[in-house]
Design a binder for these strands. Structure first.
Lengths: 241, 241
DNA sequence: CATTCTCACTGGTACGTACCGGATCGTACC
DNA sequence: GGTACGATCCGGTACGTACCAGTGAGAATG
């Protein structure tokens, strides 16, 4: 039945099961019992269990002692992914808008230069924007992009997604980012911009976005603590000592 | 050798291995061979392999065909993972300690009951702890665990990792969690506990930890904004609209 | 002395058996 | 008609055997 090849049987069986649960079965449906599968595919139960446990481990199947093994209902998408402010707000049910505060070429500071892998003092576009949701301030953002990568960024309409401009005009696709977040008091400057008290808490994000060719963007955002929250899923990872 | 006993042997063996790789072995060191472990603990090789593969799955061990099984070198990157406070602080170079403020069985609130998949009013252990790093307050934590799962939690030493207790005593392994975070002002209660101003910003985490059998824990933590930050990597999700 | 070969040992694969406790359902008994 | 029992399914646990393909150290060879 199996043995098309050099692949271990439990790997082949795994693939076969995956195919059936994707094509023929609905979430919540039961797959054949382990003992049934042993005769169907003419393998031992240990092999069947190896295949199944691999799929259980990836969250595709769930075992229920005494009943059987069922196809897992697909999980709601993890909320933590790389999205532009615009996408993010729409997904949360808000109407996003943007106020461009400034856009100019400046010399890269030390931290920015290091983050972007360029020299300190190299020219970078500095874009400062206020982000609104339903016409109320949600976040303040300052972003830096190397001029060498996006020479004419200032000519574009910066009230929308800069990621879209990068992609359409410069063929640069930001595929992943690393960000650090912490909590601060708004303070003089941002209290005014965000229309909150000076002692109001804000969530600060320091993000470096990268394309396949390396870092492209650094952004420091300050979100109003009273209007923003972030959800994420955690797995027990390799470094979960 | 094993058989303390209500727990399956491979779970006990898993715990035993985890202890040795945490206490006696350096990253990169090899653990005894599978056949060696069968005689040491007087179990079958299948049992040994079950214990090992569970640890491999969580990234604590790595198997090398023809050579052996080695303790995984912890990676410094990927800062966003499921880790206990103790683990987290050690990784950040701090010396963690804990002050247990209270531990009692209470009736589950509505939000907690919903998160844990139990009935409102069902008995849950409520553990309130102050977490210190280098003897200074870092975070305040309140956790809830269903009494049905951990009947005698109050008898344990709660100044360390509760995850470790869950695993060692109850055979419950928290493998993943969903958490939401936002920024707040410390306020009366927490300002005093965390030794900061009432207007000082804190990062709040509302986390639900789950084992393979479902939710086990809800924890609400408040971290001092001036002492804590969170790093994470973002990928462009499947629907990168 | 350098190379090659052998061989013990590793994890990986695959088979078999056996028994347990939980779930389900039909059936026999009040 | 409702309850209790038992047969029978399920996955979970645990044991055993056997062989394979890499690895690596030491022996045999050049």
């Amino acid at each position: 039945m199996l043995n098309d090849s050099l692949l271990p049987k439990h790997v082949q069986l795994r693939a076969a099961l995956l195919k059936t649960i994707e094509e023929d079965l609905q979430p919540g449906a039961m797959i054949p019992s382990e003992r049934d599968l042993t005769t169907r595919y003419d393998v031992s139960r240990a092999t069947v269990r190896a295949a199944i446990s691999s799929l259980v481990n990836e969250g595709r199947l769930t075992t229920v002692p005494g009943r059987g093994t069922v196809v897992t209902r697909p999980r709601v998408e993890s909320n933590l992914h790389l999205a532009s402010f615009t996408q993010d707000m729409r997904q949360r049910g808000h109407r996003p808008s943007t106020e461009v505060l400034s856009a100019a070429v400046v010399e890269a500071g030390e931290a920015t230069a290091k983050a972007l892998g360029i020299g300190a003092g190299d020219p970078v576009w500095e874009i400062e924007r206020l982000r609104l949701a339903d016409d109320e301030p949600m976040a303040h953002e300052v972003s830096w992009y190397p001029e060498a990568i996006v020479p004419a960024l200032g000519d574009e309409d910066l009230s929308g997604s800069i990621y879209a401009i990068l992609e359409a005009t410069y063929g640069v696709v930001i595929t992943d980012a690393q960000q650090t977040t912490w909590a601060e008091q708004a303070g003089h400057t941002y209290a005014h911009l965000l229309e909150v008290a000076e002692t109001a808490p804000v969530m600060v994000f320091d993000r470096v976005g990268s394309s396949n060719d390396g870092p492209v963007e650094q952004t420091i955002s300050r979100y109003r603590g009273d209007r923003y929250q972030l959800s994420m899923s955690l797995q027990r990872g390799p470094s979960a000592r």
